[in-house]
């Protein structure tokens, strides 16, 4: 950890999830659209006692700073897509990217991982870091936290968040079919009484 750059700052916090604003990675020289972290990716936050809280990205959105008003159309002629940003290098100051992440566990200062809700919500204004592929792999060995992901109801349904999470890990660790298989079975066990959602989740997993 340590060497990583934060990707967001917590702007709303609860026992179940956090809402963070994406920190702007742009320099004036290469302006690009500001995007939330991948749906389903694992992030973490330092907590005051020295441990870390883990969360899975469950939603992302970019709007104007004044959320009451829609953004203004800026494309014209050949100026489309990322050229819009280059033409308006100040754009990022009037746009705001927000993401939600579901709390799925925490790490004690001694390094023990727990895959249930942390005792405290992560503090407001703390920085949100992306988990490295190694951290993600370590955290996802035990899938008990899938239950927390599946419990999400809005804005994105839990089975979609869960499927996105599994896809994200599969992308980080290609060739890990055995883990995906295990994850699918785990989801099937958790959704044994809800075939509709199970189908939705596993269809979203199919390559």
């Amino acid at each position: 950890m340590g060497t990583q750059q934060p990707i967001g700052e917590i702007v709303e916090t609860t026992s179940l999830y956090l809402v963070a604003q994406r920190l702007d990675p742009n320099t004036e020289a290469t302006p690009r659209p500001v995007q939330p972290p991948n749906l389903g990716s694992l992030v973490w936050v330092h907590v005051p006692d020295g441990g870390r809280v883990f969360a899975v990205v469950s939603y992302g959105t970019t709007t104007g700073v004044d959320s009451q008003r829609r953004a203004v159309v800026r494309s014209h002629g050949e100026v489309l897509d990322d050229r819009v940003y280059r033409e308006h290098p100040q754009l990022h100051r009037v746009l705001r990217t927000i993401f939600h992440a579901v709390l799925v566990g925490y790490e004690t200062p001694q390094g023990t991982l727990h895959r249930h809700l942390p005792p405290q919500p992560p503090p407001l204004h703390y920085a949100v870091y992306p988990a490295t592929p190694e951290e993600t792999q370590r955290f996802s060995q035990d899938m008990r936290y899938f239950r927390l992901l599946l419990a999400v109801t809005s804005p994105v349904p839990g089975e979609q968040v869960t499927a996105a999470h599994v896809r994200e890990i599969a992308r980080l660790h290609p060739g890990n079919e055995e883990w995906v298989e295990r994850a699918a079975r785990h989801i099937a066990r958790l959704l044994k009484r809800d075939y509709e959602r199970l189908q939705a989740a596993l269809e979203a997993l199919a390559p």
Binding site: V180, E181, A184, R185, I187, A188, R189, L191, K192, Y195, L198, Q199, L202, E203, L205, A206
Partner: peptide
């Protein structure tokens, strides 16, 4: 949907 079939075995 083989993944689904396999995942269901012993679960659903």
């Amino acid at each position: 949907n083989e993944l689904l079939t396999r995942a269901l075995r012993g679960t659903g």
